[in-house]
Design a protein around this nucleic acid. Structure first.
Lengths: 120, 120
DNA sequence: GGCGTATCTAACTAATTAGTTAAATAACCG
DNA sequence: CGGTTATTTAACTAATTAGTTAGATACGCC
């Protein structure tokens, strides 16, 4: 997982139009025109969103006559999830004693921000 | 979960500097200066990244003398994970028959992109 | 070949982002 | 008070993003 692959994935997800496109594609492959329909937005604008999703590896484009069907490729979402997974213990809240201890020593005794020479 | 909360969360995560800052904060609360250290980047640039993280709700800022300690608040990462979770079945690959069927009917018989009047 | 539908490219604009340096603010310390 | 350290704000620039409209391209059909 190179760092800018995650950049592309997360920034593709940072837009509600693009998340809605993914949600639609979760129901199945469809055309650009149908993807565009729910939005008050020109065709070219949708084409650009699709390019962003494609750069992130989240969609696959086919060719069928004058249509360029899009389908979901969720594999990169797994990479995003794996990255987030590292932080699960933080939102689940229950650190065990060792983790608490490590966190304290990391912050120089857990007493002060930088060093222990200052004393408030 | 309002849509633009997710926008803020994902776009905060779309930058490697900010992900590195979160990784550092996972080890414990620290100062702006220490956060800035690994990067070839001015102080104000780091302040801006912190503002983005703060807007996303990912960090909490304190005050201690002339320091403004940062600490991680991972709660929004749970929201991101929850959103991604909807797609897990896609990257795990094994759809059950019902899901396959639903996906096919959604795409008008699963045969064509738009309708069944065309026939290739 | 020419028409109609689907989609993309080009060229442009406005807003946002990521960085800079210089100066302001805040708080401790002697 | 005056100096030093930490951090933020202001003002600026360059690059990127999200949208637009107009025109090009691709393909099927008659």
């Amino acid at each position: 997982m190179t760092p800018d692959r995650l950049d592309h994935i997360f920034s593709a997800l940072a837009d509600p139009t693009r998340r809605a496109i993914l949600a639609r594609l979760a129901l199945g492959t469809t055309s650009v025109t149908e993807l565009a329909e729910p939005f008050r937005m020109s065709g070219p604008a949708v084409t650009k969103h699709l390019k962003v999703l494609e750069r992130a590896g989240l969609i696959i484009r086919g060719r069928e006559a004058q249509w360029r069907p899009c389908s979901l490729d969720a594999a990169p979402l797994k990479d995003a999830t794996d990255w987030l997974e590292q932080y699960r213990r933080f939102w689940e809240g229950s650190f065990d004693r060792l983790e608490e201890y490590l966190q304290e020593v990391q912050t120089n005794g857990g007493k002060d921000v930088r060093d222990s020479s200052r004393d408030k």
